[in-house]
Amino acid sequence: MHENPSREEIRNLLEGARNVAVVGLSESPYRTSHAIARFLQNAGYRIFPVNPNLKGPVLGEEPYATVEEIPERVDIVDVFRRSELTPPVARDAAVAGARAIWLQLGVYNEEAARYAGEHGLTVVMDRCIKVDHAALLGR
């Protein structure tokens, strides 16, 4: 059974990250994914929208259909998808060379965690990146 990294490991991950792919990002400002992506931008991260249904920029950034298509190295893949849809995202994140996959609050999948962990990614599940950022970095 997966165990999330320690608070210190999560703090180090957040402090060392610059690029965050937001999988499932919605163009609607009323969706949680949009609000958290905007928070991440305001906190100094560069976000990369990942959603094959997006037709134009979101929060000023061009969208991608997959993490692998992003032309820069991604530090964290922040996932806003249903739990059962996360194993392909874990594979995409691993192929792209991401450092970590972060499944948002309410999202939990052992298969995705196992695959990502076996491919060297730090795995955080069922936690909100915004809440952890505020609690651990105070910004």
Results as ranks from 00 to 15, higher is better:
residue 53 N to K: 15
residue 72 E to I: 05
residue 87 P to I: 00
residue 38 R to N: 07
residue 8 E to F: 11
residue 70 I to K: 00
residue 77 V to S: 02
residue 72 E to G: 03
residue 14 L to H: 04
residue 77 V to E: 05
residue 61 E to I: 03
residue 15 E to R: 15
residue 24 G to L: 00
residue 21 A to D: 08
residue 75 D to T: 05
residue 87 P to N: 02
residue 43 A to C: 11
residue 18 R to Q: 12
residue 75 D to R: 14
residue 87 P to D: 02
residue 24 G to H: 03
residue 74 V to K: 01
residue 54 L to E: 13
residue 38 R to M: 08
residue 58 V to A: 03
residue 42 N to A: 11
residue 30 Y to V: 09
residue 20 V to F: 01
residue 39 F to H: 12
residue 14 L to P: 01
residue 63 P to I: 03
residue 45 Y to G: 00
residue 69 E to H: 03
residue 36 I to L: 01
residue 25 L to S: 02
residue 42 N to V: 04
residue 40 L to N: 12
residue 30 Y to C: 07
residue 69 E to Q: 04
residue 11 R to T: 05
residue 75 D to P: 10
residue 74 V to N: 04
residue 71 P to H: 10
residue 77 V to L: 10
residue 31 R to Q: 11
residue 59 L to A: 14
residue 82 R to K: 11
residue 55 K to T: 13
residue 35 A to W: 12
residue 24 G to F: 04
residue 40 L to V: 04
residue 31 R to W: 06
residue 67 V to N: 02
residue 41 Q to T: 10
residue 61 E to F: 00
residue 73 R to G: 00
residue 12 N to R: 15
residue 84 E to V: 08
residue 15 E to C: 13
residue 79 V to H: 06
residue 28 S to Y: 00
residue 88 P to A: 03
residue 54 L to H: 08
residue 46 R to S: 08
residue 10 I to W: 05
residue 36 I to H: 15
residue 18 R to C: 09
residue 69 E to P: 12
residue 34 H to D: 04
residue 43 A to Q: 15
residue 12 N to P: 02
residue 47 I to K: 09
residue 22 V to S: 14
residue 53 N to H: 13
residue 67 V to P: 12
residue 50 V to L: 05
residue 36 I to V: 15
residue 35 A to C: 07
residue 15 E to Y: 13
residue 10 I to K: 13
residue 27 E to K: 15
residue 81 R to A: 06
residue 39 F to Q: 11
residue 64 Y to A: 05
residue 22 V to T: 12
residue 28 S to W: 12
residue 31 R to G: 07
residue 70 I to W: 03
residue 79 V to A: 09
residue 25 L to Y: 14
residue 82 R to S: 09
residue 86 T to H: 02
residue 55 K to G: 13
residue 36 I to R: 15
residue 74 V to L: 05
residue 51 N to G: 00
residue 44 G to D: 06
residue 71 P to V: 01
residue 75 D to A: 07
residue 24 G to Q: 04
residue 83 S to K: 06
residue 40 L to G: 12
residue 30 Y to I: 08
residue 30 Y to H: 14
residue 35 A to N: 10
residue 29 P to M: 14
residue 62 E to Q: 12
residue 38 R to C: 01
residue 8 E to Y: 08
residue 50 V to N: 12
residue 48 F to E: 09
residue 44 G to V: 02
residue 70 I to V: 07
residue 11 R to M: 09
residue 61 E to T: 00
residue 28 S to P: 09
residue 65 A to L: 10
residue 35 A to D: 08
residue 50 V to F: 10
residue 51 N to L: 02
residue 44 G to N: 07
residue 47 I to E: 14
residue 57 P to R: 15
residue 19 N to E: 15
residue 67 V to K: 04
residue 35 A to M: 14
residue 32 T to R: 14
residue 61 E to C: 02
residue 69 E to A: 07
residue 25 L to C: 03
residue 71 P to N: 10
